[in-house]
Write a protein that binds this DNA or RNA. Structure first.
Lengths: 195, 195
DNA sequence: TGTAGAATATGACTGAAATCATATTTTAAA
DNA sequence: TTTAAAATATGATTTCAGTCATATTCTACA
């Protein structure tokens, strides 16, 4: 899907495997790196003063997380593997050094962040659409707009459902309906918009 | 609320007033600047190949938008004033030049983007909470966690309601309930968490 | 290749938030 | 200061997505 590439010198990048449930870092830990999920899922969890914890985000395949570590001495949340997960480790120092030596790389990373901002904003706006059917249609339009007139999802449809804030049942139902109405065509996870 | 500051040289920054309904730029226009909403609201709207348009985001007081203009030759959406709006204009060239001359400024902007990514992710995650009451509580905890034990909202509560994906009626009701149950205290737009 | 677990799928029912209606209060504007 | 518009508030009703249940594919992997 979205290929994420950080401008870290290759020699400085390493990978790590986390077992389901394993913690990558704790809130308050000294920041050492920013990360990319290769496969799996990382749950980011913030602890509040009152002892409660709030899930901040789930980082899935291809996504970066803890980018703000670059600008902070400590992590502001826990990072825990939701399932067996492989991650890429980009040491903070290596990245910052790279930026200092080559400002172009800084601009590259900046662009990466800007793209994420846009992407997250549109995902937020999708959530404002109340009707499940309409939400799915708009989501598909957004996803498909660039490439062509169809998209093949890499992740299970039930995960797609979650990402747009629908129960998987509701999502399956909407897809069935849209297909029956001739608004989309499907072949497994390949979905095409008609009209 | 969130003070947004871009590292543009003061002399290069200008402001502009837009009347309700006025367009700041169109999708496909050559990119010239990135913007901050001082007061008002800007609707970002993407046009699709099929003639439809999707609302991408609403930028409110203090928010930046079109950051990605720095890395693109054309705007990827329309920007239209939802109401009378005053904006700050930060010319793209001035910003890029500033980054080139002083890499620290690039890092500052990068940090600004990283904060936004975090903020947007947590706003997304809030939406995953189904129960209106629980969603409001978690939202308040997030907003209040830093400053102290209460927060005074600058914008109308009905706008807060929209930002967390609730109808204003539902939001008012939840606030009433929480107050009755002694879980929050209120004075107009000042809301404090108890416990 | 067989098997367990996950993903896909669909029906029935429920509940909680949206919607509609309306009133009061606050704010802004004339 | 008066007035109009927006925000706050709450009740009644409806709707639609969630939940629960269950069945049928897939898919990974032993």
């Amino acid at each position: 899907m979205t290929y994420t590439q950080l401008p870290t010198p290759k020699a400085e990048v390493s990978t790590q495997r986390l077992l389901k449930g394993e913690t990558l870092f704790y809130q308050g830990d000294h920041t050492a790196a920013i990360f990319i999920v290769i496969t799996g899922r990382i749950r980011l969890l913030r602890h509040l003063a009152d002892g409660n914890a709030i899930p901040l985000y789930f980082a899935n395949d291809g996504e970066t997380f803890s980018e703000a570590a670059l600008f902070s001495d400590v992590y502001h949340c826990d990072a825990i593997a939701e399932k067996n997960t492989e991650i890429e480790i980009h040491p903070k120092k290596a990245l910052l050094d790279a930026f200092a030596v080559n400002p172009d790389l800084a601009m590259t990373f900046m662009a990466h962040l800007a793209r994420q901002v846009i992407n997250l904003r549109s995902r937020l706006e999708i959530r404002n659409i109340r009707s499940a059917e309409e939400r799915v249609i708009q989501f598909l339009k957004l996803e498909i707009s660039d490439p062509g007139n169809s998209i093949t999802f890499a992740s299970p449809l039930k995960d797609i459902a979650a990402s747009i804030g629908l129960s998987h049942e509701a999502f399956y139902r909407v897809l069935s309906t849209l297909e029956r109405e001739g608004k989309i065509v499907r072949e497994g996870r390949k979905i095409g918009l008609v009209g």
